[in-house]
Simulated assay, not measured.
Amino acid sequence: MKHTTLAAGALLLALCGTAAAADNPALKKCMDGASTTADMVGCNVKETKVQDARLNKAYKAALAALEGNRRQQLQDVQRLWIKYRDANCGFIGSATGGTIDQVNGSGCVLDMTQARAQELENLVGP
């Protein structure tokens, strides 16, 4: 059972890391040079900061483009999304009880932040 859990965790790491790194040369380069769990988490955290700045810029642009009830709806949805992201990634980041959870959790935050930034950018267009 423990081997199955560890194998599943390793697979999850491989899938999550590949998805984010495949579209991001800076993250891929960082991950390629990472030799420890802490290094991998550091790569995810560094790129999450970039994606979070992107998300905040897109959120402000979306708010500026909306009025009245739609603006309030976006604010409400964004607050709920943050709670969901944190809960979801907390869950993913505690699957095995091992150090790989740190990588999976930080990768989850990165992936979800990047996806949400894209969603918000799509609200207002180019």
Rank of each mutant, 00 (worst) to 15 (best):
R70Q: 12
A115M: 04
G105C: 05
G98A: 12
A20G: 04
R70I: 07
Q73P: 12
Q78E: 13
C43P: 07
A62I: 10
L110N: 01
Q51K: 06
V50W: 06
G42I: 07
V45R: 12
N104Q: 03
A87S: 12
E119G: 04
I82A: 12
V45D: 10
N104V: 00
N44M: 08
G9A: 10
L63V: 09
L120N: 00
R54H: 14
Q114W: 02
N69D: 13
D52Q: 14
R85H: 09
A87H: 12
G107L: 01
S35F: 11
V45Y: 08
L123T: 10
Y84A: 13
A22L: 14
G97V: 06
V77I: 14
A10L: 08
K60M: 09
N88A: 09
L123D: 05
L15Y: 07
D23W: 01
C89G: 02
I82G: 04
V124H: 14
T113G: 03
T99E: 06
E119C: 03
S106Y: 05
T113R: 00
Y84S: 11
N24P: 03
S35M: 13
R79D: 09
D32N: 13
I92Y: 01
L80A: 15
V45E: 13
A22S: 13
A87P: 05
G105P: 03
T48F: 12
A64E: 15
N122H: 11
R71K: 15
K83W: 14
P126K: 08
M31W: 01
K60E: 11
K60Y: 08
P126M: 09
A10F: 06
L63S: 04
A20V: 09
Q51V: 04
G68R: 07
G97W: 07
L80Y: 13
D101M: 05
Q73L: 14
A53G: 11
N104T: 05
V109E: 00
S94W: 11
T96P: 03
W81D: 06
G105V: 09
S35W: 15
T113Q: 03
L13C: 05
S35Y: 11
V41K: 00
D52S: 08
A95T: 14
A20Q: 03
L55N: 00
M1Y: 11
P126R: 11
A62W: 02
T96S: 04
Q72I: 14
R54W: 07
L15C: 11
N24D: 06
L11A: 11
D32L: 02
R54T: 07
A87F: 12
L74F: 09
Y84L: 11
T4Y: 14
E121G: 03
G68F: 08
K29P: 04
N88T: 13
D76K: 10
I100K: 00
A26D: 09
G17D: 01
G107A: 03
A7D: 13
A65T: 14
T36L: 09
R54M: 08
T96I: 03
D32W: 08
L66A: 05
S35L: 15
A87N: 13
Y59G: 00
A20D: 02
R79K: 11
Q75T: 15
L123H: 08
R85S: 10
A22C: 15
A22Q: 14
